[in-house]
């Protein structure tokens, strides 16, 4: 049994008066893929954004309960958010490459964190793009604007950009929602590969995808965590009737 990487205890989140997360208890283990599934608006992205404290920048948003990263409380006032975010990379729900070149996008974080020398930057850019299954498509246009890429290419660029900081945990919010089946398979392949070194938490609306790539699956329903278990159990023998309804598409 591998060690616990991230643990949420009685986690509650409020956007002003609106409670978006109600008492979430969830542990994510090292080198495991956890899939978050559930209806649109149930709080999957919100939960994901707690894990690298991206909700900090939303005004009136506040968090209660406890969230630990390797045993350290990340909502403790002394927590170094910058250090946390270097370890917890994120791919957002909507592709958000910078209005810079492809190269500058991927090299952004390494440069920010002090890698200056050109050769190592080149190397990081190439490996990250290869990992994200984008290298072949962009190797001849590395110095062209990233916003000229297609939506799916932009999404893979964002994956490459997140990989370039060499995080320990990777948060992926519907990373394949804008991708064709081939690229989707490539990204799933990537997730299985990355799993050997990284802890991955992925939000997906695609049940097959959750079944294919994840070890554990958590089912959310309007701010509640209904059920979390090994993916196999969730998909073959869920304990909660609502989970069964959702995965069999009989919900609502």
């Amino acid at each position: 049994m591998s060690k616990i990487k991230i643990e949420a205890e009685n986690l509650k989140l409020f956007y002003g008066d609106f409670q978006a997360l109600k008492n979430i208890n969830l542990t994510m283990k090292e080198k495991e893929v956890t899939a978050l599934i559930g209806l649109s608006g149930c709080g999957k992205s919100t939960f994901l954004r707690c894990l690298n404290r991206m909700n900090d920048i939303i005004p009136n948003c506040h968090v209660e309960g406890k969230l630990t990263f390797e045993g350290e409380d990340i909502y403790h006032p002394d927590c170094d958010v910058v250090a946390l975010r270097k370890k917890v990379g994120m791919v957002f729900q909507a592709p958000n490459p910078f209005p810079k070149t492809v190269y500058e996008n991927v090299a952004y974080a390494p440069k920010l964190h002090g890698t200056k020398d050109r050769a190592s930057l080149d190397e990081i850019v190439e490996t990250s793009l290869k990992q994200a299954a984008l290298w072949d498509e962009v190797k001849d246009r590395l110095h062209k604007p990233a916003l000229g890429l297609s939506g799916g290419q932009q999404q893979r660029l964002c994956i490459a950009r997140a990989l370039a900081i060499k995080p320990e945990v990777l948060l992926m919010d519907e990373p394949t929602s804008a991708l064709d089946p081939i690229s989707t398979l490539k990204i799933e392949e990537l997730i299985r590969e990355l799993k050997q070194h990284y802890t991955i938490i992925i939000v997906t609306h695609n049940m097959q995808q959750a079944a294919r790539v994840s070890d554990r699956t958590a089912f959310f329903l309007v701010g509640d965590l209904v059920e979390v278990d090994d993916t196999e159990v969730i998909f073959t023998n869920p304990k909660d009737q609502r989970t069964e309804d959702y995965i069999t598409g009989r919900f609502g």
Partner: peptide, 27 residues
């Protein structure tokens, strides 16, 4: 400048000022 650039930059461990200088102002 769209908020998402700020978010992306922060999520990679930039401080607010770094994000402003390296992403927002150039954009």
């Amino acid at each position: 400048v769209p908020r998402k650039y700020m978010e992306a930059s922060l999520s990679m461990g930039a401080t607010r000022w770094q994000a402003i200088v390296t992403v927002i102002v150039p954009a």
